[in-house]
């Protein structure tokens, strides 16, 4: 499902990073742990098709994603990868339900009732027509998860999904991610330095310090 091989990357004025190879099948979960500045967000961006590595390959569903050209890669990402960020990053001009609709639109997928279902499952159906600035932090994070899942991605990437949440919410979010990725039969990669997450996900790799 997901495999990376000999990925290297360097920022313009920084030292080069090299990342361990990753292999992940559907229904599997992986935790990438590292300190701040260890490059763990970089690896997530590379896997998500957001940042081209200096060398190495990323294969998702047997597709070499950096061999795809511009708009093709964008479309591939929209249809196959769901990204959840540290901050919810909800489109400010739109309501909750429109945020999910826009994800459908950019990926050329139709709704088919998925939106209502996921809003209900994530317990935000009652905020359907609310604007972002009326949501609580937990609600906003759930909206961003719903949006990442609305196109039924094969790969779900989460970047520090729990860092700004309290224990109770952090646990809930992790459980939600696990449960949803099982349901969608997707692979889940979580990047974090949050020790609370460790106990929930079996497979770990550590980047930065070895």
């Amino acid at each position: 499902m997901l495999s990376t091989s000999s990925i290297e990357f360097s920022y313009e004025d920084g030292p080069p990073f090299s990342f361990p190879d990753i292999r992940l099948e559907r229904n599997e979960e992986l935790l990438i742990i590292g300190e701040s500045g260890s490059g763990k967000t970089t690896i997530l961006n590379i896997i998500g098709g957001l940042l081209k590595p200096k060398s190495g390959k990323v294969l998702i569903d047997n597709e070499d994603i950096y061999a795809l050209k511009g708009a093709q890669l964008d479309k591939f990402r929209g249809r196959n990868i769901g990204v959840i960020f540290q901050k919810p990053h909800i489109l400010s001009a739109l309501t909750v339900v429109e945020n999910l609709q826009v994800a459908n639109f950019f990926a050329n997928k139709s709704d088919n009732g998925v939106i209502d279902t996921s809003l209900r499952e994530l317990d935000i159906a009652h905020k359907k027509d609310a604007k972002v600035n009326t949501l609580s932090q937990g609600e906003a994070q759930r909206v961003s998860i719903a949006r990442a899942l609305v196109n039924h991605p094969k790969l779900i990437l989460a970047d520090e999904p729990t860092s700004s949440l309290d224990d109770k919410n952090a646990e809930a979010v992790i459980q939600l991610l696990k449960q949803q990725s099982k349901k969608l039969n997707a692979a889940l990669v979580v990047v974090t330095h949050d020790q609370r997450v460790k106990d929930h996900i079996q497979q770990h790799i550590t980047v930065g310090k070895f």
């Binding site: 990868i81 990053h89 001009a93």
Partner: peptide, 15 residues
């Protein structure tokens, strides 16, 4: 941010 999020959701540069 919004524009970057749209890109991750599948919007191309042209879009």
């Amino acid at each position: 941010y919004d524009l970057a999020v749209m890109r991750t959701l599948g919007a191309s540069r042209g879009t």
